[in-house]
């Protein structure tokens, strides 16, 4: 049956993250906050970030969304804790390349568990669901990092 192809996208770990998202909620004290919308489906994602010694010390997200956007947000929050804004920018660029099917050589090392979302490349209509949270964190900490990279979020051109 054709639904078996869905396993490439909805891996068990993806379903687990969507069902029990990590860092879901809000922070008592946030240095940065970003609310972002996916205009194709109306989903809203809010990301709050606290920094300590130039690194992400705490992060939380809230909002509604599909399995892919919620799982991706949950994985993103796991992976960016302890990272500097510059490191996060690099991760976001890597994620953005991965989901359009061009993962850089070190993507698994850079993205950790979130690398499992590479299957989304075979579902082009869902790329924006996967990148929503990464775009939000990028914009949230972007000011810490100076100007945004020109190559970021290449999928927006697709």
């Amino acid at each position: 049956m054709a639904l078996s192809k869905l396993d490439n996208l909805y891996r068990q770990v993806v379903l687990d993250h969507a069902m029990h998202p990590h860092h879901h909620g809000s922070l008592k004290r946030a240095d940065h906050q970003m609310e972002i919308r996916n205009p194709t489906c109306g989903d809203v994602l809010n990301v709050e970030v606290a920094l300590k010694d130039g690194k992400v010390s705490e992060i939380a997200f809230s909002g509604s969304g599909c399995t892919i956007s919620q799982a991706s947000a949950s994985m993103m929050t796991d992976e960016v804790i302890g990272k500097t804004p510059a490191q996060i920018s690099q991760m976001v660029e890597t994620f953005s390349e991965m989901v359009i099917g061009n993962p850089p050589a070190d993507y698994e090392k850079l993205l950790g568990d979130a690398a499992i979302l590479e299957g989304v490349a075979k579902f082009p209509a869902r790329i924006k669901c996967a990148t929503l949270a990464w775009k939000a964190v990028y914009q949230a900490v972007g000011n810490e990092n100076g100007e945004a990279s020109a190559g970021i979020m290449r999928h927006e051109q697709l």
Binding site: L3, L6, C41, C66, T67, I68, A125, R126, C129
Partner: peptide, 21 residues
Amino acid sequence: LHPHDVATALDMEGVAVRAGH
């Protein structure tokens, strides 16, 4: 289930529907 998840699953079955607002 989010409509986008449903629509992706239906697409895998060859069924084209719209999902969104």
